[in-house]
Design a protein around this nucleic acid. Structure first.
Length: 425
RNA sequence: GUGGGUGUAGCUCAGUGGUAGAGCACUGGAUUGUGGCUCCAGGUGUCGCGGGUUCAAUUCCCGUCACUCACCCCA
């Protein structure tokens, strides 16, 4: 009986891990430069947390959560990161310690959807959350951060979409206006849209169904209804983006599938090949009411999340990162193999990356192995070298060979590796 | 949940009603301790699984499972 990876969940083999590490390092560097600190939360939360924050009429909560029932309590594998971070923010009363909190996270999320290109059941997101700043300037800063990161990650062909849902009052007014517009035309809507008209009318807006789009085309735009502070927030956000020189598309049809958003909403899409139908790289927005709804103080918040797998798909063509230069130790015979282990220890202590052959084989096969590993150096250690107290250092790139006395070996290797491509220096 | 596509060596795939191949990869060798190129040699497959038709099925039919792409929705 062989076992397989669970549907929609994938191993990431070492040959791919280099790209992941580089991406994660880039993300950390950019967000830390923006003064964000890392938050780590459990992968499992009370199911009710997600129901409360994401919304009970959303697809995520309705059908996509991995739920574990355990001794009367219902737990769920986190489908996204914002709810957990908000829970942690409230639970630790972080608002009482600092006026503004800037957190970032990186990790696995779980949604029981049908997998396809750019969509998995276990996937990875990186995201940022800011608590305690009502915006709109921080909203613009976050978008700038996202685009800076994507650019540094080597992601091409980006499009930033922005919109605003307004505050609760505007949203309620718009909801009424939309329902008033759609209800007489309900017969022309698709089945799911008819259902959503009752449960979550805003979601009808981003239906891809052609019939729905025709009906929606004549609907009023929420952006036109923005008034007062909502309008000022929106205008100032756009002015800030203009001032930053960040290109964007105002997209009134942008309606995120999570219920908790208020005012600012944004999304980054890419037309990069390799992405397939799932071309949304980043989704984010403001959720000023959530902290209060989770039992915390009325602290405004905004955040975004980006999908690492999708980003990797979008940057597929980029060259894989090269690891640190390696050194291969090729001992010939039992005596040399014994000696080689200590040699390798010394070299590693000096910072080198060393693989030592412990299996035996002809020198030819060992050199072949050293070469296929991409080693920079091969240290040949046979009876002749042992008797003379030297090690033959072979440079695989230049073919140069040199007998180096044991005592000078570590320094010699360090010097040679330092000049090699991929070395930290 | 719905629809399409695909399941043959480790990987990418070809192929035929008479129990199967290529390339890559891997291992060894091309005069005894010097790799990358080239050449030679070598091994492996329940042809996804179950059933049916047939003298005979990997090849035809049915079912099933898996993977995959798309819809829905989302990162």
């Amino acid at each position: 009986m062989q076992f397989r990876q669970v549907q929609g969940m994938h191993d990431i083999l070492p040959e791919q891990v280099g790209r992941w590490q580089r991406l994660e390092a880039t993300f950390r560097r950019v967000v830390e430069a923006h003064a964000f600190s890392e938050l780590r939360t459990p992968l499992v939360e009370p199911t009710a947390l997600f129901v409360r924050s994401i919304g009970d009429a959303t697809d995520i909560v309705e059908k996509e959560m991995f739920v574990l029932e355990r001794e009367g309590e219902s737990l769920a594998l986190r489908p996204e990161g914002t709810a957990s971070a908000a829970r942690a923010f409230v639970e630790h009363a972080v608002h009482a310690r600092e006026p503004v909190t800037r957190w970032y996270y990186l990790g696995a999320m779980f949604r029981a959807e049908r997998p396809q290109r750019g969509r998995q059941r276990q996937f990875h997101q990186a995201g940022c959350e800011v608590y305690g700043d009502p915006g709109p300037w921080v909203d613009a800063e976050l978008m700038e951060l996202v685009l800076t990161f994507l650019r540094e990650a080597g992601c091409p062909e980006l499009e930033l979409h922005v919109s605003s849902l307004g505050g609760p009052e505007t949203r309620a007014r718009y909801r009424d206006a939309l329902v008033a517009h759609l209800t007489p035309r309900a017969a022309a809507l698709s089945e799911t849209s008819q259902r959503r008209l009752a449960t979550n009318p805003l979601r009808v807006l981003d239906s891809k169904d052609p019939a729905d789009q025709a009906v929606v085309a004549g609907a009023p735009s929420l952006l036109d209804l923005l008034e007062g502070d909502d309008r000022a927030h929106w205008d100032e956000l756009l002015a800030s983006l203009d001032s930053l020189g960040v290109p964007y598309v105002v997209d009134p049809a942008l309606v995120r599938g999570l219920d908790y958003y208020t005012r600012t909403l944004f999304e980054v899409r890419s037309s990069a090949g390799g992405l397939g139908a799932q071309n949304t790289l980043v989704g984010g927005g403001r959720y000023d009411a959530m902290i209060g709804e989770l039992g915390g103080p009325p602290v405004p918040a905004i955040g975004f999340a980006l999908g690492l797998e999708r980003l990797l798909l979008a940057t597929e063509g980029a060259p894989a990162p090269t690891g640190r230069p390696r050194c291969f130790v090729a001992p010939l015979g039992a005596r040399a193999r014994r000696e080689a282990l200590g040699l390798a220890r010394e070299l590693r202590a000096s910072g080198a990356v060393v693989e030592v052959d412990t299996r035996g084989g002809s020198l030819k096969s060992l050199l072949r192995r050293a070469d296929s590993l991409g080693s920079r150096l091969c240290l040949v250690l046979g009876d002749g070298e042992l008797d003379r107290g030297v090690v033959q250092v072979k440079d695989l790139a230049s073919h140069e060979r040199a007998d180096v006395p044991r005592g000078a070996l570590v320094e010699d290797v360090r010097r040679r590796l330092a000049g090699a491509p991929g070395s930290p220096e």
